[in-house]
């Protein structure tokens, strides 16, 4: 599958990545090359093969319903780009 300029723009938008318009052809070429590699998968018929999501055949472990975390807001917000009154600030959200 070969990707066009419009495909790159659509994917970049979905992934919220700003791509310099000048770089779009490069991305289109590289990603098309990767997809070509990936499509070698089609050499094998996988009809009826169980998909494998995890390497180990384990099941989900569960924890007890206990509060184990204390308030560390100050520490966590020291590394935040912009906070005020304990809130993380972002450009206005329009619903």
């Amino acid at each position: 599958m070969s990707l066009e300029k419009a495909d790159i723009e659509k994917i970049a938008h979905l992934a919220r990545l700003e791509i310099d318009p000048g770089d779009v052809p490069d991305y289109a070429r590289n990603l098309s090359g990767i997809l070509e590699l990936v499509e070698q998968m089609n050499q094998v018929d996988t009809e009826g093969v169980q998909p494998m999501a995890h390497p180990l055949r384990m099941t989900q472990r569960m924890r007890a319903d206990e509060v184990t975390e204390s308030n560390q807001r100050d520490k966590f917000q020291q590394i935040a780009p912009q906070v005020e009154a304990g809130l993380y600030l972002v450009p206005k959200v329009i619903e």
Partner: peptide, 27 residues
Amino acid sequence: DLEDLYKRSRGEGFGAEVKRRIMIGTY
């Protein structure tokens, strides 16, 4: 705006190989 925050922070913060892989995965 919000979209600009996301796109430029991620576009400027990540290098080309990371962006390629994010895009392949997204696709």
